[in-house]
Each structure stands twice: as C-alpha cells, then as structure tokens.
Amino acid sequence: MIKLENVTKIYKGEVPALRDANVNIDKGEFVFLVGASGSGKSTFIRLLNKEEEPTQGRIFVAGKDIGALNGWKVPYLRRNIGYVFQDFKLLPTKTVFENVAFALEVIGRPSHVIKSQVPAILELVGLTKKVDSFPGELSGGEQQRVSVARAFVNRPLILLADEPTGNLDPATSVGIMRLLDRINRTGTTVVMATHDRGIVDTMRRRVIELDKGHIVRDQSRGVYE
C-alpha cells in the first residue's frame, strides 16, 4: 500500500529530516512512527500526502509512484488519504455536521450521498447528539472525533494521523485510539506519529522509530522503546 525507496528529505539545504528511508507498509497495517521531537515523523507523513516532495528516492502509494504524479492529479491522490492532526483543523464557523459534510462537498459528492454518509460516520464516532454543535462548544476529545469523522467519511484507503492524541488527556486518548483501531479493522491502513508511550505499549502494533531522520528500528508488535 505504501512503499518508500531510498527516500531522503532535506529542507532547503539543511540537515536531512529523513535519510535514505526504505519502508514497506501493507494494506490494512497499523504503523506507529515514534522518535524524539524533530526526528522526522511529520516529514514522513507529509511526504505520503505529497504535501512535501522527497529530495531523493521514490514513494509509492496504492501502487502509484506519486513523484511522477501530475500536479492536477494530487487532489485525487488525497481523496484516498484521510488526515488527522494534533490541532484538529476544524472550521469554527461550521457545525459538526457541516465540517464533515464539507469534506465531501468540496470533492463534488452529490447531496444525497452527503445526507446519508455524514450521519453514518457521526454515529460511528459517537457524535450523533452533537451534529449541530460548533467546534468551540465541544471538548478536545469530541473535536478530535469530528476530525476523524471528516478524515474517514470518504472511506479512504489510508489514514494518516500526526499526534492525534497530542492535545488530549490519557482517558480521552484511549477513546480516540479505539476509534482508529476500529477504522483499521475495516481494512484501512493507518500510519500514526506519536509521543504517547502508553498507547504504543498497549496496542502492540508495528513500530518504526526515527532518530535524526534515520530509521533505527522497524518492529512488528513493537513497543515505544
């Protein structure tokens, strides 16, 4: 599903943020990216989404070399990739329903699809009662559920999560992880960067550890350290 071949990323002539990475992630895998701050986790994730271009090497997503992708095709790549952030990136002037619907609307989905899929996904994340609330009226955990719903509403093949529990307390984090686990069980490949030792150690999934851009460990059913 995801393959990195000798990928190096150097931001504007500085020290490499990612060095000669070779990774193969199969469909349906759940992968944790761990490592100190600045080790290159976010860079890894942004490369998959073509938010950043690799300085060297090739990246394949769903069998396609995304480096060879025309600019106008990038949106179609992204429709297959859900993205969850530490800071949620919800639109404050839209309700929960509208935030999720927005993701479908702007890729041209017809309104009958929106009307059936948005309530379904909000039920999956357990926010049926909050459809008409605004993000400002929700707890951090609830906001992150909305953002997961938005990332998953189009049923992407891949879900990228950059420290999705970074702003949440441990109990709330567990809830979000249950949700991501559930999404993973539908066959969606999940790649998640995290500093949360407790989560990594309880989930026991594949762990890729980065250190100053080097992949120093790639372990199935791994732990944080």
């Binding site: 989404n49 992204r78 429709r79 990136k89 639109l91 993701a103 702007v106 890729i107 938005r150």
Partner: peptide
C-alpha cells in the same frame, strides 16, 4: 482555513 482543509481532503484547484 477552509482552503487548507479543501486541499487536504482533495478538492481540485479549480474547485477552490
């Protein structure tokens, strides 16, 4: 913010 989200979820340039 809207534009950022639109790009992330795969709205085409023209749509934006």
């Amino acid at each position: 913010r809207e534009i950022e989200v639109m790009k992330l979820v795969g709205a085409t340039n023209w749509f934006i």
